[in-house]
Amino acid sequence: MVAAALIDGDGRVLVQQRPPGKPMAGLWEFPGGKVEPGEAPEAALVRELTEELGIAVESACLAPATFASERLGERHLILLLYALRKWSGVPAAHHASALKWVRPLELHGLEMPPADKPLIGLLEALV
Rank of each mutant, 00 (worst) to 15 (best):
Tyr82Pro: 02
Glu39Met: 13
Leu27Gln: 15
Arg71Leu: 07
Lys86Met: 03
Val15Met: 09
Gly21Cys: 09
Ala40Tyr: 04
Met1Asp: 13
Ala3Asn: 05
Pro104Leu: 10
Leu62Asn: 11
Thr50Arg: 13
Leu49Val: 05
Ala4Ile: 10
Leu84Glu: 04
Ala98Leu: 05
Glu58Met: 03
Pro23Tyr: 08
Ala3Leu: 02
Met112His: 08
Ala4Val: 10
Met1Thr: 12
Ala115Gln: 14
Arg47Pro: 06
Leu14Gly: 04
His94Glu: 13
Ala40Val: 01
His76Pro: 00
Gly109Tyr: 04
Ala83Pro: 01
Phe67Cys: 08
Val2Arg: 03
Leu14Glu: 08
Arg103Leu: 15
Arg103Pro: 01
Glu124Phe: 01
Glu52Met: 06
Glu111Val: 10
Leu84Tyr: 07
Ser97Cys: 05
Glu36Phe: 10
Lys86Gly: 00
Gly73Val: 04
Val46Lys: 00
Val57Ile: 10
Met1Phe: 01
Arg85Ser: 14
Gly89Thr: 01
Ala98Cys: 08
Ile7Ser: 03
Leu81Pro: 02
Ala63Arg: 14
Ser88Arg: 14
Trp28Gln: 03
Val35Lys: 01
Pro20Thr: 05
Gly32His: 05
Ala60Tyr: 03
Ala125His: 09
Gly26Val: 09
Leu62Ala: 09
Glu58Phe: 01
Pro64Gln: 07
Glu58Lys: 11
Val35Gln: 07
Leu6Ala: 12
Ile55Glu: 08
Ala63Val: 15
Glu74His: 10
Pro37His: 11
Pro91Cys: 09
Ala96Lys: 00
Val102Cys: 15
Ala43Asp: 15
Glu51Ser: 12
Leu62Pro: 12
Gly109His: 10
Gly9Met: 02
Gly9His: 09
Ala3His: 03
Pro23Gly: 07
Ile7Pro: 00
Ile120Asn: 01
Lys86Asp: 11
Gly21Val: 12
Ala63Gly: 00
Lys117Asp: 00
Leu79Pro: 01
Ala44Gly: 10
Ile120Gln: 03
Leu49His: 04
Val127Thr: 14
Pro19Val: 08
Pro118Thr: 08
Tyr82Gln: 07
Ala68Glu: 04
Leu6Tyr: 09
Leu110Asn: 10
Leu62Asp: 13
Pro31Thr: 04
Phe30His: 04
Gly121His: 07
Met24Thr: 04
Ala4Lys: 03
Ser69Gln: 13
Leu123Ala: 05
Ala92Trp: 00
Ala68Tyr: 04
Leu53Tyr: 00
Pro20Phe: 01
Ala65Glu: 13
Ser69Tyr: 13
Glu124Asp: 07
Met1Leu: 06
Ala93Phe: 08
Met112Asp: 08
Glu48Met: 10
Ala4Ser: 13
Gly89Trp: 00
Leu79Asn: 12
Trp28Arg: 05
Leu84Arg: 07
Leu62Ile: 10
Ala98Gln: 10
Ala125Lys: 11
Arg47Asp: 07
Val102Thr: 12
Pro104Gly: 11
Val46Glu: 04
